[in-house]
C-alpha cells in the first residue's frame, strides 16, 4: 500500500492526463477563433455533437479514428455555421454562440438516442508506465494519443500564430479589422476559417470524451466542460501553450476531490470537488493586475455588444 500523499499525487498526474484533453482541444480551438476577434460560446454544443458523432461513427465503422475525424468534421460544420452567420452585419457573435450551443446539444441528443446502449470501439491508449512497479502509476500513465496530438497542436499553433503569414493575418484581423481590410484581407473570410478550425478542435475534444475518457456516450457526458474550456481561454490569455497548462491544471485539480475521498479525507468533499474552479479563480486573482489586464486580448474582441 502506498502512502496517501503519493496516491493523491498519482491521481492528480493521472487526472491531468485523462481529464485535460477535451479542455485542451476546446480551448485551443476557441483560442484560434478569438485570436481573429470572434467569440464562439457555442463550443459546449460542438463538444457534445462531436462526442456523439465520434461514438456513432466508431460504432458503425468499427474504427475509432474515423470517428475522431467525423467528430472534427461535425464540429467544423457547426463552426462554419457560426462563422458565416456572424459574418453578417449587426449579428452578435456571443448571442449566436449561446443559441448554437442549444442547437448543437439538441441535435446531438436527438440523433444520439440509439447510441446510448451499444458499446463502440474506443481509442487505444499508449502504456507509458510499463517501467514502473506501481500499478497506479502504470494506469496514470496510460496516455491517449489525442493528448499528444493536442500538445503538438498547441505548439504548432503557437508557432504558426507568431511566425507565419497565416498567423499574422489572423492576429491582424483580431487586433484591427480596419488594418486587415487595408491589407486587402477579407476579415469575414479569415474569421469564417478560424471559427471552422475552432469547431474542428472542439469536435475532436468531444471524440476524446466518448471514445477515450470516460469513454462512452450519454447525455450527461459533457455537463459544461465546453463552456468552462471557452472561459479557460481568457484565463490562458489567448496563448495556445497556456491553454495546455490551464487544461492540465484543471484536469489535475479535478482529480483532487475523488482521490482525497479515496484516501480517507472525506469531510467537505463538495469543496474538494470544486477545487478546479477555486484554484482557477485564485490563480487568476493572483496573476492579474489592474494595469495591463487587457494587454493580451485581441483588440477586436468586444464581448459586451
Amino acid at each position: 500500500m502506498e502512502s496517501p500523499v503519493v496516491i493523491v499525487l498519482e491521481a492528480m498526474l493521472g487526472g491531468a492526463i485523462r481529464v485535460s484533453t477535451p479542455f485542451m482541444f476546446v480551448a485551443l480551438g476557441e483560442c484560434v477563433t478569438e485570436k481573429s476577434g470572434r467569440v464562439n460560446l457555442g463550443l459546449e454544443g460542438t463538444l457534445v455533437l462531436g462526442a456523439m458523432t465520434a461514438y456513432a461513427i466508431s460504432f458503425h465503422t468499427g474504427s475509432p479514428w474515423v470517428g475522431v475525424l467525423a467528430a472534427g468534421v461535425a464540429g467544423s460544420v457547426l463552426g462554419a455555421m457560426h462563422g458565416s452567420i456572424c459574418g453578417l452585419p449587426k449579428v452578435n457573435d456571443v448571442a449566436v454562440g449561446i443559441a448554437m450551443m442549444l442547437f448543437g446539444v439538441g441535435v446531438a441528443f436527438f440523433f444520439g438516442k440509439p447510441y446510448i446502449q451499444p458499446v463502440a470501439p474506443r481509442l487505444q491508449s499508449i502504456p507509458l508506465g510499463s517501467w514502473s512497479e506501481s500499478p497506479n502509476l502504470r494506469s496514470a500513465l496510460e496516455v491517449n494519443p489525442l493528448f499528444f496530438v493536442g500538445i503538438a497542436a498547441a505548439f504548432a499553433l503557437a508557432w504558426a500564430l507568431r511566425n507565419t503569414r497565416w498567423g499574422l493575418v489572423v492576429r491582424t484581423v483580431g487586433d484591427s479589422a480596419a488594418a486587415a481590410r487595408a491589407m486587402g484581407v477579407s476579415v469575414n473570410g479569415v474569421r469564417l476559417m478560424t471559427t471552422t478550425i475552432g469547431g474542428f478542435f472542439a469536435g475532436v475534444g468531444g471524440a476524446f470524451l466518448s471514445l477515450s475518457y470516460p469513454g462512452s456516450w450519454n447525455q450527461g457526458l459533457s455537463s459544461g466542460q465546453g463552456l468552462m474550456a471557452v472561459a479557460l481561454v481568457i484565463f490562458a490569455r489567448w496563448k495556445p501553450l497556456r491553454c495546455v497548462l490551464a487544461a492540465l491544471l484543471f484536469g489535475a485539480a479535478g482529480a483532487i476531490g475523488p482521490s482525497l475521498q479515496a484516501v480517507g479525507v472525506t469531510q467537505g468533499y463538495y469543496f474538494f470537488n470544486a477545487a478546479p474552479y477555486i484554484l482557477t479563480l485564485v490563480i487568476m486573482i493572483a496573476t492579474s493586475s489592474a494595469k495591463h489586464s487587457a494587454a493580451d486580448m485581441p483588440g477586436e474582441l468586444s464581448m459586451a455588444k
Binding site: S259, A262, Y269, N273
Partner: peptide, 24 residues
Amino acid sequence: QVIFTGDWSMPVREAEATNALVDA
C-alpha cells in the same frame, strides 16, 4: 469505501472516482 460525486450524472467525475477507488 465510498466516494460521493455530489451529482446524479457526472460522467467524468464518476470515472475519476472509479480510478481513485481502484488506486486505493
